[in-house]
Design a protein around this nucleic acid. Structure first.
Lengths: 339, 339
DNA sequence: ATTGATAATAGAAACGTTTCCAGAATAATC
DNA sequence: GATTATTCTGGAAACGTTTCTATTATCAAT
């Protein structure tokens, strides 16, 4: 009774065949104006809208793309999602958001699901570049995909950040301010950002001909908790660092929590450099000195790479595009007082 | 050549009919163990996975739900999404995230799209309870939906927050501290949170038998910009308020920006109450006194209401469930010094 | 008017699955 | 071992669209 009208109903009401109705919708220029008018009138009066399930089935696509990340509460990911969404929506695509909470099993499940007719493509930041379950799936990928800030030796498009350069700049800046006991808290070497950031950090010391403070490198995870734990430990060291680089936007939150809890003041007691613009980073008493990256551009680029593949260029060679970071000076760093 | 295997291929390889393969997948207890084994072997060797497009078509569902909000960069929405996602994923559903950026046209387009075979249900926070385009669509809703924190005189499930009580508590708290010139910045009366918050604010003064400071009520939008603009104006008033309630988590960010820009100190120069836990609210030099609400519970409840309808109870009467707020005392309020 | 060329339409097949029904195989009962 | 009851299975229809092929309608030119 109340069932939605189908293309058959439209055909019946307007007295044409279903094929013609379909062409009226998808290629109106190939149907006679008089017929088109009749069809359109019928569509109007029935309130017909094509059922996308049937379209997906027949066209063998879904106009849907999966966006797979560990946590949408990470404001950087949210911004990136928005950029991707804006670009994809313009072209008629909708996005599945899959927040895996960092669990490899969820990640694998998400990829599996998306691959089998739920999405036409994927954009993702996987959690561990070595996880065999994920790797296996990426090897036998059936839909075009783009990796965000991850580096895997496979033919997959990727959009990256030049973290090493960013960290080198930030570290050099602190060295110039006279800091020597500089700590870095960042991801582990299982993902590119962790490896690259530590590399840049180390390079800065080497170029300055200074010894690398190995005891102050904390490279393991991007989580708030890790940031909090390590910052707490660092602040309680007998010979406390004079500066901390919170290399990861969630880490920064953890570090600030530790700083708040210990009653340390920034930049009076310790200098601080964070990552990525965020409410917290921009507001914290004063704005924090930041290693920023162009999130909108990164998202847009990822979307464009994917759209290229979806739009026919299915088998051009994989591209890797890297974006530079920018050091934004805030008020969270001071020169080390000469003793 | 490389085409994904279909259920037909499985049937051929295992020497049974397609019907049996289908039942092996969906009701394995109805197929003889020996047959089941053959089928499973074939599935394994072919790497077969059912094509969800075809399943959607045939089953007339999509195991997908739309989550429609204005901006996923709002951390409250992100947390809510996560809660909804966790609950829905358990039951096999995936979520479309549609970030409408507050544009009514995008909102209408999103609802239209979801209704016609792209999703089985919707959870949404619409932008304006009076917008005719949106209302029209909600009236002729074809899929079960749940409204988040919005109030529309239609038979639609809704999960609400008791904003009025929250604001009354917060305002009373400030009144007890001796504040009289208290400002409130919040949404306009076109959405429930705006109406209710102002109502609670006014009630607090009335119950205390005090005149309502009409000139300090700024009720128009939940945006960061509005918060910034109004806070800036308030701080520059000749007779500046002694307390501000930033009734909206984005508004709070705007207010903090204004406070930072004007070099005002909290709580020394002015007392401040915010809304919703967020990194900023918890970290800002000290934690800010907050009107909090149980976001996980709200999201979970919304998901459950939707799941009930999706699971058969399609036409029980619409439910409206409201959650209380809690005033979390931080360090951003001080008593007014006796003159 | 007739023809030929072109444009428009009807009709059916196809997409890959689920589900229904009838019929075949198996198990249970005597 | 025959008969009945029960469990499994094969085959086909159906879901709503798009797209292909064949046919019909239209138009221009003679």
């Amino acid at each position: 009774m109340d069932k939605p009208a189908t293309i058959r109903d439209v055909a019946r009401v307007s007295g044409v065949s279903v094929g013609t109705v379909s062409r009226s919708l998808n290629a109106p220029e190939t149907v006679r104006p008089a017929t088109l008018a009749k069809v359109r009138a019928a569509i109007q009066s029935l309130g017909f809208q094509p059922d996308s399930r049937a379209q997906n089935m027949r066209r063998r696509n879904t106009m849907t793309v999966g966006f797979v990340i560990d946590d949408i509460a990470n404001p950087w990911h949210a911004s990136c999602f928005k950029a991707v969404d804006a670009e994809m929506r313009q072209r008629g695509y909708s996005l599945y958001l899959m927040s895996t909470q960092g669990r490899a099993s969820e990640e694998a499940a998400a990829i599996d699901m998306l691959q089998h007719g739920r999405a036409d493509g994927m954009i993702m930041t996987i959690n561990n570049e070595q996880d065999p379950r994920t790797i296996k799936r990426l090897k036998e990928l059936r839909i075009p995909s783009v990796l965000l800030d991850r580096d895997i030796p496979l033919e997959i498009d990727a959009v990256l950040t030049e973290h090493a350069t960013g960290l080198r700049q930030a570290t050099s800046y602190l060295l110039e301010l006279g800091h020597r006991r500089i700590a870095i808290i960042t991801a582990g070497s299982d993902i590119r950002p962790g490896r690259e950031r530590v590399r840049g950090f180390v390079e800065a010391f080497q170029r300055a001909g200074l010894p690398v403070p190995e005891d102050l490198i904390r490279s393991q995870s991007l989580s708030v908790d890790f940031g909090f734990r390590e910052a707490t430990a660092l602040l309680q060291m007998p010979q406390r660092p004079t500066a901390i680089i919170a290399a990861g936007n969630r880490i920064l939150v953890g570090v600030l929590r530790a700083i708040q809890q210990q009653g340390v003041s920034v930049p009076g007691d310790i200098s601080l450099i964070g990552c990525d613009r965020s409410d917290v980073a921009l507001l914290y008493p004063g704005p924090i000195t930041l290693i920023d990256r162009p999130v909108e551009e990164i998202g847009r680029t990822a979307a464009q790479l994917l759209l290229e593949r979806l739009g026919g260029q299915a088998d051009r060679p994989a591209q890797r595009i890297a974006f530079p970071t920018h050091l934004i000076l805030g008020g969270s760093c001071l020169p080390v007082p000469k003793p």
